[in-house]
């Protein structure tokens, strides 16, 4: 007899306000930084949420650059660890959000910023002028979700071919893709090859999908 399989739902963990979360760490407690920001830019931070001792500041899109400049230049948050987009796919607009994980290397403090992005107007100011690390992350976010970054020097797709018509991490995109949207080499030996990854070796110009971004000294 096969064993009867059971499905266990994850138990609901009610919020315990007075109890200290065991996962709480001092490095994510940035109450003072958030307070400084709120005082310096009144109205720029729409909401601050705290969970497990982690502070998340919901920054308004139009004041993101101001807030990040202040964070980097006066508050010492010089290291952009991560930047990515999320398709929240929930009823209440806005649909997307972009989060930024920023670290102060001197004090070891971590701060998370979030920008809510509306589906109709999915544009966020680019942070490449402040943090060079934002470059490829913003390209990835644009590739996967279609959020455009205003002021990005080279906003091309990161992973998918440049003529790809969809943004695959949007929730409406089917997991198995859309048949025919990505070209394969021909099935017969004498068929013509459609993409030339080694065009530069024949002094041609490579297909755009294979082009590397220009280096600093180029």
């Amino acid at each position: 007899m096969p064993e009867t399989l059971k499905f266990h739902f994850t138990p609901v963990d009610e919020a315990r306000a007075e109890e200290k979360n065991v996962h709480e760490k001092a490095s994510t407690n940035v109450a003072d930084t958030v307070e400084v920001l709120q005082g310096q830019f009144p109205g720029a931070i729409a909401k601050v949420s705290v969970y497990a001792g982690e502070y998340t500041a919901f920054v308004k899109r139009e004041s993101l650059l101001q807030v990040c400049t202040a964070l980097k230049e006066t508050l010492g948050f010089t290291y952009l660890v991560d930047l990515a987009g999320v398709d929240r796919f929930c009823e209440d607009a806005p649909r997307y959000e972009v989060y930024y994980a920023i670290v102060n290397l001197d004090t070891g403090k971590r701060l998370r910023l979030k920008v809510l992005v509306d589906e109709e107007d999915a544009v966020v100011p680019s942070l490449t002028g402040l943090f060079k690390a934002a470059d490829w992350n913003e390209r990835e976010c644009y590739d996967m979700l279609g959020i455009r970054f205003e002021g990005h020097p080279d906003l091309r797709r990161m992973y998918m071919p440049e003529d790809f018509a969809y943004h695959p991490q949007r929730k409406e995109f089917p997991l198995l893709g859309i048949p025919g949207s990505l070209p394969l080499p021909p099935r017969v030996p004498e068929g013509e090859l459609t993409m030339d990854p080694f065009a530069a070796a024949r002094s041609g110009s490579p297909a755009k999908s294979y082009q590397e971004p220009k280096g600093e000294d180029a």
Binding site: Y159, M160, P161, L182, P183, L184, P185, P189, L193, T194, M195, D196, P197, F198, S209
Partner: peptide, 13 residues
Amino acid sequence: SYKMSHAIRRVWD
């Protein structure tokens, strides 16, 4: 990946 398939096919040829 679909992007790599073109390079593999070219090396095979």
